[in-house]
């Protein structure tokens, strides 16, 4: 059974159609990427799958459940693109807060927090208020909060956005490891190299429409070009300097 099933998803804001009939499915343990430029509809799509926005039409099922229900059952972990942190909360307390919402018992909280400490790699900094964290530290604590609970589906919007090379590699390894342990990952990114390295399959999204879907190799073969980046440009019909 597909862990994520998306059918003919549509969403408009003030008459502007942000997502226009997007459909795809993601299986267990798969890393699925959505690639597209700014304004393509990636974040709106991910928000609808995470149960934060309601689609105008179409449907999303997470393990056969509506997103809202799946979210409340702890099946979904979501990392927004430009998520912030609670300035006065210590990192360790934030992990404990999130774990408390996912866990079904006290022991489970501590297990999750231990995992979160490991994933974040923040060490002693976890005992300091998050307001003093660098951008990279904030991204790592948020990613740790999403993955430590081992939700069935991790939805990551630009997971390495703003991170330096070292921390980007670290985060990618964490995502790979999570998928290897059976977790399903749905992510969006501008970074074609990252997507090529991480994703089993991916989709090109442009102006709210799905242009193509397949493995990175299949897409390069279908649209031509030396790499995924060129394939994407070819798929959208070249670079539009007016856009």
């Amino acid at each position: 059974m597909d862990v994520i099933l998306v059918e003919d998803l549509r969403k408009s804001f003030d008459g502007h159609e942000a997502v226009r009939g997007v459909s795809f499915a993601v299986g267990e343990g798969e890393i699925y990427g959505i690639i597209g430029p700014n304004g393509a509809g990636k974040t709106t799509t991910l928000r609808m799958i995470a149960g934060i926005l309601r689609p105008d039409t179409g449907r999303v099922l997470i393990q056969g459940k509506e997103p809202g229900e799946a979210r409340e059952e702890g099946l979904i972990g979501y990392l927004p693109e430009d998520a912030g942190v609670y300035r006065h909360l210590k990192g360790i307390d934030f992990l404990r807060f999130v774990a408390g919402l996912y866990a079904r018992g006290g022991d489970e909280v501590e297990e999750m927090v231990e995992r979160g400490i490991e994933i974040s790699g923040l060490g002693e900094a976890l005992n300091k208020p998050m307001g003093g964290y660098s951008k990279g530290m904030k991204r790592r604590i948020l990613l740790a909060a999403v993955l430590m609970a081992r939700p069935r589906v991790a939805i990551l919007d630009e997971p390495t956005s703003g991170l330096d090379v070292y921390h980007s590699v670290m985060v990618r390894n964490v995502i790979k490891e999570y998928a290897r342990s059976g977790g399903t990952v749905l992510l969006s990114s501008h970074n074609m190299l990252e997507v090529e390295y991480l994703c089993d399959r991916l989709m090109f999204l442009h102006r709210g429409r799905k242009l193509g879907e397949g493995t990175p190799g299949e897409l390069v073969a279908r649209y031509g070009g030396a790499n995924l980046e060129e394939a994407f440009i070819n798929a959208i019909g070249g670079v539009d300097v007016e856009a």
């Binding site: 934060i52 409340e72 702890g74 979904i76 979501y78 998520a83 942190v85």
Partner: peptide
């Protein structure tokens, strides 16, 4: 809203 924590909060497993 300013610290952009709302979206993540809304995604957590709580009604």
């Amino acid at each position: 809203r300013e610290s952009k924590t709302l979206e993540m909060l809304l995604s957590l497993p709580v009604s």
